[in-house]
Design a protein around this nucleic acid. Structure first.
Lengths: 229, 229
DNA sequence: TTCGTTAGTGTATAAAATACACTAACAAGG
DNA sequence: CCTTGTTAGTGTATTTTATACACTAACGAA
């Protein structure tokens, strides 16, 4: 079956920059390309937008198909459509970025039998197409957004220590923060609530675990949120 | 001539929210629809993305074709692609927004012989498609962006008084600002430079004219720019 | 000459950001 | 069980930034 149009149309795809957090680094999920072009090179997960499907849905579907990830934070980033970005034909891609908590989401083998792996943002391979540029834009966006919207929490487990949270902010913003001022500021926003639990199996004094206050979180996500840490 | 693809493709368009400033209000440029659907209703200027053309180029081309505007500030906004947004078929649109100075750019009759007109953002007609939603997103973006990037200047003539600038900020942010604090803050950023000229033909003390410092402007556009007026 | 209107200026106060150092708790290892 | 290593947890003083606020100057119009 084929489809015919009066005028030529660019192909329309989605690509997703998936950020994850491990103990040491901010990471990005990449897929090893199977087909041409750029066979064997690493690329962002993504695929074609079906007719009748919103771009966001397409991004979620492709992400689940290629990596098994579902129900994660996902937002549109920017649309890249330079005619030369794909050597085969004019392909316009709606780039998205996603945040996942590595403890609670496993990346399973993809249905396409393509290889998926996490890479530190400080040690990235050469990427196919213009995916390096997309990744750079995503990282800039994440850095900018984390300052006025509490999205970074998506990268942490449900319960977390303030140290983990501070570490996350330090990784994203790429600079050190003052412990006392950070705690003061976070607690003042009231988007985290203390629990009566403490971390376990650590070779030092155990830190208290905190969790999000979902109600405050929703409110702050919509309204202004100043986090000039 | 027709074009055939293995899988169906959504149509790809651009739409542009053009903001302009007159003495009283922030305005938006709309086009009266000629063809179906929504014939006779007002809509954002826009059109199809050609194969081999970047979305930004498409937006500039369509804007020039439909309104005669060229060489203006234009940025990508967001891509809207809900399948139901166009009743005919699945059309994905890459929305842009643009800022023009009404004194230096005339909107000429469009080549399509369609009617173009400015509307105050406080008195908008019902718009075709999901264009009201696009306009709302554009306005939110403008309001947010003006606080950390000096883009508002694009709406003013080359030489302007500080009062005009303050008025612009008041219109965009929709609240009154303190004159002394505003002047203090603007001059502190050093993105405006005083000239030796003064406004003319005003029935009161003439105000000094200022102009952008393009070098500072470029630097501030890239780096942080905090304008919490 | 008066009136109306906007230009242009500084200071005091409040709020927010920053810099900074010690004691507490706990596990590991001798 | 005592010492060591490591991270948790806490407050205050200082600097910076934002805010609130009112008068004189200039100029055209009447």
């Amino acid at each position: 079956m084929s489809h015919t149009y009066r005028y030529p149309r660019p192909a329309l795809t989605v690509d997703i920059v998936v950020f994850g957090l491990d103990a040491e680094d901010l990471q990005v999920l990449l897929i090893e390309r199977d087909g041409k072009p750029f066979r064997g090179q690493w690329a962002l997960p993504g695929g074609f937008v079906d007719v009748g499907e919103s771009p966001d849905d397409a991004a979620r579907r492709e992400l689940e198909e290629e990596t098994g990830l579902s129900e994660i934070f996902l937002e549109q980033l920017y649309t890249f459509g330079n005619p030369g970005r794909d050597p085969r034909e004019h392909v316009v891609t709606i780039a998205h970025y996603a945040l996942v908590n590595l403890n609670e989401h496993d990346v399973k083998a993809s249905s396409d039998a393509r290889n998926a792996a996490w890479f530190s943002i400080n040690d990235l391979p050469k990427l196919a197409f213009d995916h390096s540029e997309i990744l750079k834009v995503a990282l800039d966006r994440l850095r900018a957004k984390v300052r006025y919207q509490p999205i970074g929490f998506e990268l942490l487990p449900k319960k977390f220590t303030l140290r983990q949270l501070q570490h996350l902010y330090e990784l994203i913003l790429d600079r050190e923060l003052d412990k006392r001022n950070f705690r003061k500021k976070v607690l003042a926003t009231e988007i985290v609530k203390e629990t009566n639990q403490f971390e376990k199996d650590v070779a030092h004094r155990a830190a208290r675990l905190y969790r999000f206050d979902q109600r405050k979180y929703d409110r702050m996500t919509k309204q202004g949120f100043n986090f000039e840490v």
